[in-house]
Computed example of a mutant assay.
Amino acid sequence: MIKSALAIFTTLLFIHAGLAPANAQTTTTAKKTIVKKPVAKKVVAKRTVTTTKTVARGSLNNREKLVRKVSVVKGKRHVSYQRVSAAPSVSPVPPVMTAGDIAGLNMTPDPLALRSNVALVVDPANSQVLFEKNSAVALPIASVTKLMTALVVVEARMNMEETLTVTDDDVDREKHSSSRLRVGATLSRDDMLHIALMSSENRAASALGRNYPGGLPAFVAAMNAKARSLGMMETHYVDSTGLSSQNVASARDLAKLVVAAYNYPIIRQYSTDPKYMVEPSGHALQYNSSNRLTSNKEWDIGLQKTGFINEAGHCLVMYTRIEGRPVVMVFLDSKGRLSHVGDATRMRKWLVEDQPKNLTRVKMVRADQG
């Protein structure tokens, strides 16, 4: 009886303390048995500030990379390494091949290491060829086309003050090029010609052709007829902008076009202006020249036109004076946004430094022999 009372007292003591004796999992009363379970203590985790820096250590193979992780925990620096799957390699997008590249013209060497597949330098006074590279090959000429567009417009003697309206027909749906002239914008034929020559505005050139008597088909026919009259036998036009790669010509033909267009002061002025302001539908817009050489005081440029589409590369034609001597330069299918300008600068330096030899006659080996 005493032991039973002592056991009950001990059990009650442990229950009050929140514990149960190791050898007493149950408490027996006269009426029922109560099972007591141990009460788990709450564990509060201490906050740890971790800073991790991951540094790639290089490739283990084509599929895995070793990554070095640097962690700072409670002010202590820990370094670990982990293998991770490498991202699959992506093949580079191949460069767009121009028509000249496809024809193999990029394999033609020249002493100036020009980036243009085609080059021609001519003295217009006597038709002497000072430099020549693939000059008889017909290639896409991009916006150099606009020089013939200007020639046809000027020789048609149309009313230059007539207002022309940009329509949906002038929107470029072939190359999707942008334009600052919105559909519905109005400008005089004179202003359209100005920004088409100076800044290569495509919608302006399209509007000029479309507003020719007989429309664009008649205008293109007039362009091709003018080319034939100038002896441009490797030339063919299909539009007034040059956006189509079917507008083709050889450097020899373009030299003839430059000389013919140079006879018109309006084409000389409009093509060489560095900037010009127009107000289509009353909104002022400033256009800049597409040829930065027009603002370069070291150059004396009497006429110029640039051009670019993927098939043609970068193109440039100029009538300039070097050491007081008139020179026509033609560069077609050049690689790089300013490469045609760089080639012109390189050519000018070459002509000046090697005088009088270079300004007499230098003829390069051509890919179009025969």
Rank of each mutant, 00 (worst) to 15 (best):
T52S: 08
S244I: 01
K349Q: 05
K37R: 11
L293Y: 15
N117G: 07
F9T: 11
T52W: 03
A142I: 09
T33W: 09
V248P: 15
F219M: 14
S240A: 03
D172L: 01
M329L: 13
K297L: 11
L120R: 06
A255F: 14
S179Q: 02
W299A: 03
P140Q: 12
Q286A: 11
V327A: 01
L332P: 08
A284E: 09
D354M: 07
V43P: 11
I309G: 09
D239H: 00
L60M: 14
T54D: 02
T50F: 06
V129F: 15
N61R: 14
A56G: 13
L114C: 00
H340K: 13
A22D: 11
N23A: 09
Y212F: 04
A113K: 09
A22C: 11
R252M: 10
E162H: 11
N310P: 04
V238A: 05
N263G: 14
V220Y: 01
V248M: 08
L193F: 13
L303V: 11
V121M: 07
F331L: 05
L193S: 04
Q82E: 13
D169C: 08
T145G: 02
T50L: 12
E311Y: 03
L105F: 13
P92E: 10
Y287C: 08
A221D: 11
A142D: 01
K74D: 06
R63V: 04
G18R: 05
A204K: 00
P94F: 10
L359E: 04
V317T: 15
K357N: 03
L151C: 01
V171P: 01
K357G: 12
Q82G: 14
R63I: 07
N23Y: 08
M329I: 03
R157P: 04
L60K: 01
I195V: 01
V365K: 12
V278Q: 00
G324H: 04
L316I: 02
A119P: 10
H236L: 07
S200V: 06
M198L: 12
M347P: 09
R57M: 09
A260F: 00
M148E: 15
